[in-house]
Design a binder for these strands. Structure first.
Lengths: 193, 193
DNA sequence: AGCAAATATTGCATAGTCCGCAAAATCATG
DNA sequence: CATGATTTTGCGGACTATGCAATATTTGCT
């Protein structure tokens, strides 16, 4: 059990650092928070801070969700409606991440005063879109590469919006997110044709 | 003519700094280029560098295109097909920017080794999408806000892809970009419904 | 329990980014 | 050419981030 215990501790520390970063950012504003102050608030040395996160921004945002391309391959050969498949795929990704509503809310508040953080977050979404775009490219056929990428990017935007909605509405559960993604993508489709 | 002459000089210097940043990044890799070296290559002091660009990334990317929300208001009341209006609007924005094919190519090459720059660029696209989303929100009606934002974001992605295509293909002219945007957005629409 | 290997934390030194301030240089205009 | 406005520049300083080596902690094993 050596690996599990160490990893759990590691995860716990990473989370504490993120919470420290968020607390301080909400209190003093992201720009006024130093890596020193975050480390101090989290009870670690400044040097250790950088063992957990590559930079200050990453500490505030925490580990970004990742799309495991192996666990997502089914979407290439699925015959169901595209939008439903996409919604389902992204929904599963969210479940794997065990997203925390309170943290999402705090992140959003920091965003409002720090566009730079929005950019970093969007970058992690783009990484997902890149993987997803590759899969869709295979599914749709070799002459549909641009469309595959556009749809992948659209899907990650729909995901972001749905998550934001979920964070703002206590009555909404994580399982409500995929249907919401599918619905909005369909509406977009109708408006575009 | 005092103002005009000063501004022209300012624009010229900004461009020289960008070219210096691009040259050095292509030669040594973005990560190995310092603001000192860029300033030196551009023939200015390090301090002056930061009078022109807020940071190293901005120097490589140059002035981002901007969507003048006043000059774009017509899209709120236009009755033409949505995708064509969007394509036209973004096309006009491009014309205003007088985009340079060679510079776009250089930027793309630097991107390939520096995902961080991609994020910054995408951020400028998101600013455009934000403005555009507001306009579309008005056009589509108050109950269509999420769709308005999604379409705005999709449009900026389509623009990016089209510009990349244009940069790679000498036979393509800037005026070919709007039709390309419209076509791809329509295809996406069909795939989504 | 106790030892040895693996892993994590920390301090220190260092390169680099970026900003505020004030002096010096440059420029536009009468 | 004098003068006020603008720009450039140097300098100092706060902060980010990384490599390296020493120290501390944890783990597996006897």
């Amino acid at each position: 059990m050596t690996i599990n215990l160490r990893d759990r501790r590691r995860l716990q520390t990473a989370r504490e650092i993120q919470l420290a970063a968020l607390r301080l950012s909400l209190r003093h504003g992201y720009a006024c928070v130093t890596t020193d102050s975050i480390a101090s608030e989290a009870g670690i040395s400044t040097r250790t801070f950088f063992n957990y996160y590559p930079n200050k921004q990453a500490a505030v945002l925490g580990m970004p969700p990742q799309l495991d391309s192996c666990a997502a391959e089914w979407i290439v050969t699925s015959t169901g409606p595209l939008v439903d498949d996409l919604a389902c795929l992204l929904g599963r990704m969210l479940e794997a991440k065990e997203i925390d509503r309170e943290i999402v809310r705090m992140i959003e508040q920091v965003w409002d005063t720090t566009p730079e953080l929005m950019a970093v977050f969007r970058n992690s979404m783009d990484n997902i879109a890149l993987t997803l775009g590759g899969l869709l490219h295979t599914r749709l056929g070799p002459d549909r590469q641009p469309e595959a990428m556009l749809i992948a990017e659209l899907a990650t935007h729909a995901l972001s919006h749905a998550v934001r909605h979920w964070a703002a509405d206590d009555a909404m559960s994580v399982s409500d997110i995929p249907p919401m993604i599918a619905r909005q993508m369909r509406q977009v489709g109708h408006l575009l044709v």
